[in-house]
Amino acid sequence: MDHTMKWFGILSIALAYGLLGCLMILSDPGQSIWIWFLVAFIPLTPITIWLIALGEKRNQMVGSGCGCGVKAPLSIHLWLHQTTILWIVTMFMADQFAKQDLSPAFRFATSMLPLPGFVAVALVELAYVKYMDEFQRRILLEALAIAFPAALAVCFIGGNMQEAGVISAVNINKMIWPWMVFTIIPAYAIAWWRYR
């Protein structure tokens, strides 16, 4: 990720949150809760500070540390961590906002909060995949091929059990993404094990 791309990324995320913030304030100026959207900027601070402070080290090639041997510039790893934090923080923020008694426009704006973080994660993931060799891409593809149906199966079985009254009611929408995270880890392990 070059210098221009880095600043483009930071500005895009800041602009997206700025627009969302404006929408939230304009839609309901009386709400003091809009201040909380500023919390979304907290994860952006370490990104900026780290990337500037690291200087030349940001281009240093480092391993992923998860044993899969993907070597990518330090800046990509930092972007990956920070955008993931941004995404998770905004997901929980949106979840909290959804429980508040807010106007419809405000609700729309707060429900969109995780979107810029998600787009940022997806873009950094794409940049990260470029640093994988053909074998590592094969492993990733196989891991996804295992994890995606496994997460779907868990959700569908969970939904059926819920309808059958075997398990208590849970919000199935909020179960899918954690299951994708939980299934990708064993799926990765299985894919690696096949080629050990």
């Binding site: 041997g69 993907v70 060799d133 053909e134 074998f135 590592q136 094969r138 096949r194 080629y195 050990r196």
Partner: peptide, 22 residues
């Protein structure tokens, strides 16, 4: 070769066939 050590290991053990460019 510009690939990971794991890729070389997988090729050597016959678990993975490299692409034509590799």
């Amino acid at each position: 070769a510009g690939v990971s050590r794991q890729a070389i290991n997988a090729i050597e053990t016959g678990k993975y066939d490299p692409s034509l460019p590799l």
